[in-house]
């Protein structure tokens, strides 16, 4: 089997036509294949997120992870860039949507594209993946333990993020939610209410919550890593994308 993959840093046009950095990984066989926009977690466009991006390519998808912090910290180390953006209160929602749209357009323009696009995001990126699915025409979206999709941040918290469930009527695609039962943000109760709301709206979705796992259980380089949960959840992702990105 021919299994070569090309992984490289590229420039794409993000929100407002801005040129932003992105990390792309894609199989070199002719395809056609679906595309995945990987939305990095709050600590940024780091080595572990690039590894996740390569994992999608190894498993047969064109994948791209836009550096959401390109503008504030061009060329900076991921941790320095994350600190600068964090101090500024995070990434504005509208800009995020524009950057994901630009990444999706880059994927659709590949000669190996089949036209199908998914998003997947982790931590703050989980909420952003859900948001993108409410605002863009997508084929699948995965929310990995995104907080503040259903509930507002605790009173007094300086977080600028606002809930996005109010936009859920506009969801353009099925949603896969992957959560840890020990997580507080989002809590199991918040996940349950989001599940109920999507059912009420008639939106195609499937949620899986893992006992013994908390926030960031996919993170292989952090103590939050839970191998059993992560392995099962990766399987759910391959099944979900297999159904919705085939073409």
């Amino acid at each position: 089997m021919y299994d070569a993959v090309l992984a490289e840093t590229v420039n794409i046009h993000g929100d407002g036509g801005d040129v932003i950095e992105a990390y792309a990984a894609r199989p070199l066989d002719p395809g056609p294949r679906g595309g995945v926009v990987v939305i990095h977690h709050m600590p940024g466009y780091d080595a572990s997120t690039k590894e996740i991006t390569r994992t999608f390519a190894v498993n047969g998808y064109n994948a791209i992870c836009p550096n959401l912090y390109s503008r504030e910290a061009p060329g900076a180390a991921p941790d320095d860039a994350a600190a600068a953006v964090r101090a500024a209160g995070g990434v504005p929602d509208d800009r995020l949507v524009g950057d994901v749209a630009g990444a999706a357009a880059w994927l659709r323009a590949l000669t190996t594209a089949n036209g199908k696009i998914a998003t997947i995001g982790y931590c703050s990126g989980g909420r952003q993946s859900f948001l993108a699915a409410c605002r863009l025409d997508l084929d699948a979206a995965v929310d990995c333990y995104g907080a503040f999709v259903m509930d507002a941040p605790p009173e007094g918290a300086p977080v600028k993020m606002t809930p996005v469930v109010g936009q859920a009527a506009n969801l353009s695609c099925p949603v896969l939610g992957l959560f840890g039962e020990d997580d507080a943000y989002p809590s199991p109760d918040e996940v349950k209410r989001l599940d109920e709301e999507l059912t009420r709206l008639g939106k195609d979705h499937e949620f899986h919550s893992y006992p013994g796992a908390g926030h960031a259980f996919f993170s292989v380089d952090r103590p939050a890593y839970r191998p059993e949960a992560a392995k099962d959840a990766w399987g759910r992702i391959w099944d979900f994308f297999g159904r919705h990105l085939a073409g």
């Binding site: 964090r86 101090a87 907080a147 977080v159 507080a184």
Partner: peptide
């Protein structure tokens, strides 16, 4: 959670 809770001085 990503707290974004920051004291700047």
């Amino acid at each position: 959670m990503c707290t974004y809770a920051t004291t700047r001085l």
